[in-house]
Structure formats: structure tokens, C-alpha cells
Design a protein around this nucleic acid. Structure first.
Lengths: 166, 166
DNA sequence: TATGATATTGATAATCTTTATCAATATTCA
DNA sequence: TGAATATTGATAAAGATTATCAATATCATA
């Protein structure tokens, strides 16, 4: 999954370098949001990040969440994920190579996967088409091992419908 | 590309069967929106469809565009496309098998591609992971043949930023 | 063809997400 | 410390999509 909780020292270092380079200052809200994001494995929405960040610091505002997540994206620590349900989620990038996603339509779980053979074929495809690839996104929708199995109690239901976060 | 302009008879037939099955009625606005969508090759946003539909019938409203596009999606004639810029676009599905996309970040052009070998490897990957795939989306971002080449005049610039349609 | 039941529409309000504004505050450096 | 200015949070604003609802159009039936 995403970055392990607690192992955030190097991410913070990366972010510090990024801010220094841009002449940005250190601020409490920014740090709170960063740590909230780093401590959580799941792919969170802006609203989820806001709620969690407010547990650390109730004064954090929405705008700062969006501002900070934009900075994190620019610093290469995270990436926006737009899946079929229309929700935008933020995903950890540091310490991860590129990866694709298996998305369970039933429980909403996202599994990160990489298949070098697929990557190679994609490169070949682009070559054939004269297309200079920069990056790509592959999402496979279906049912995860758990949900697909014949279990009596499916894992925690999580709607993947739009507006579910509220 | 998408469906050729004019070749819409069978799509209309498909939609008629769909509406009949659901006990829906025929209406002028619905037909105008359907034809607008079918006649256009590009991947249009709801707003673009609205504008074009109003050329045929100035009384068409926004809500009806969204309602109709939802019906078209359910009938299998189109699919929502969410690319990185955040815009939602509608794409033709009828007469198309599944396909992936090469998206030019410079001119905004979308090329539809299929690579059976990639599809096979994806199936294999899912098998390995115990994932029961239903469908998938692959988008490769970069520069198309034209934009990547050393041409003096790049093709019609089309911003791919959010809110560009307005 | 007239008619009644009801599907459909368009205008508009409402909702949700994200961004812009701006005065107040916090940070940094000399 | 104090001045310069980056940052913040509240809130307004913007954009996209959906819900509401009275007016209208469609269609089966008489």
C-alpha cells in the first residue's frame, strides 16, 4: 500500500528541500496536513484530509488543505487520482515507483500493482504510433480477491459512488 | 476516431430499443441531443454538447443534456471519460470495441488504440492477483506524433486545463 | 380524433468541490 | 526587535452536476 505510518522522516526532508528551493516558510498548518497525509495509508480525499488534520489542529482551513496538497503534488510526494466515481483522491508517491491500480467496485479498495511486461508493451505501442509518452495511468475495475470469493461477510462496505465522502 | 458523422442509423436503433425496453417516450430534445452527440467525432463535454444541440434546437436545457447523456451511457452508446485535467467528456462506444487512449498534453488530441498483447497481460496480472476484472481504463499521456515532431506550426492549440471549455 | 395518464422538459434552486479574495497573523532575517 | 512578506482561515465566488417543480408533450386507448 502507500507509505507506512511513522516512516515519514525522508518525506519531510524532501518537502523541506522543496520549500527551501522555493523560498517558502515553515508553518504549523502545513506541517499538520503533511503529517496527516503521510501517516495515512489510504487514498484520501481533500475532505478526509481536512477532517483528519483537524484532529491535530482544529484551526486548519479547507483552503490550506488544497494549497498544501498542491504543493505536495508539485514536490513529487503525491499524485491526484481520479477514478470512475468522480472523486479526487491523493496518493503517496515517495518511495514508490510508478504503479497501476486494481480497484474493487464492491469494497472500494485500491491495490497498487506493477507489471514490467505491460510497461514494455506500452512503450512499444507508443513507438509504433509515434507517440512520445510522458506517463500513464492504468486502472482495472472489478472485484478484489476478498469480494470475489464466496465469503459470508464481505469486507467493510465502502460505497464508491459520487459524494460518498460527506 | 469516434463514430463517423452521418452513420447514426444503427445507434438510433439501439437507443430506440433501449427506450422501448424502459417504457420511455420519444422526445424532440432527446433526439436533438442524441444526434448532436452522434454527429460529432470529438470527445465532447456536457457544455459543448449543450451548445451544439442548441444550434438544432435553441430551447434545449442543461438538465436535459445531462439526463440524456446518462441514458446514452446506460444504453451502452457512450462512456464518460475523466482525464487528468478534470474535465468529463463523453465518448462514442457503439461500433467500437474496447480501446485505450493516447492523450496529447500539448494539443489535447485523443487517439484511440488497442493492443491485444497488453490486454492479455492485464488478464494474466489480474489472475495472479486473484482479481476478477470487469473493465479497465488505460490512458497514456505525452505528445502526439505531430506535436512531438519538429514542425514550425503545431496543430491547433487546445488547452487541456480545467475549465477550458468556458 | 379527443382524452387522460404520465413521461419529459426547462428554468432555476441547490449542492458539492475547488479556487480567489483579503484582512489578520506568523515566519524569517537583518 | 522590527520590518518585509509568506501564510492563514473565513468567506465569497466559480464551475459542474443534480434536484425540484409547474408546464408541456407523448402515447395508449376510447
Amino acid at each position: 500500500m502507500a507509505t507506512k505510518a511513522g516512516v515519514t522522516a525522508r518525506e519531510i526532508e524532501v518537502f523541506d528541500r522543496f520549500t527551501a528551493q522555493r523560498g517558502l516558510r515553515h508553518s504549523r498548518p502545513r506541517r499538520d496536513i503533511l503529517c496527516t497525509f503521510l501517516d495515512e495509508d489510504r487514498h484520501l480525499t481533500a475532505d478526509e484530509i481536512l477532517r483528519l488534520a483537524r484532529r491535530r489542529n482544529p484551526r486548519v482551513g479547507v483552503a490550506t488543505v488544497y494549497r498544501t496538497m498542491k504543493l505536495l503534488t508539485e514536490s513529487g510526494l503525491c499524485r491526484e487520482l481520479r477514478i470512475e466515481d468522480g472523486a479526487v483522491r491523493y496518493e503517496h508517491l515517495f518511495g514508490h515507483g510508478h504503479h497501476d491500480h486494481l480497484i474493487c467496485s464492491q469494497c472500494g479498495r485500491l491495490e497498487e500493482v506493477v507489471d514490467p511486461a505491460i510497461e514494455r508493451l506500452q512503450d512499444r505501442l507508443c513507438e509504433q504510433k509515434g507517440f512520445v509518452a510522458d506517463h500513464h495511468r492504468l486502472e482495472i475495475y472489478g472485484r478484489c480477491r476478498t469480494c470475489a470469493g464466496f465469503r459470508k461477510t464481505p469486507p467493510r462496505q465502502r460505497s464508491v459512488r459520487r459524494g460518498e465522502s460527506r
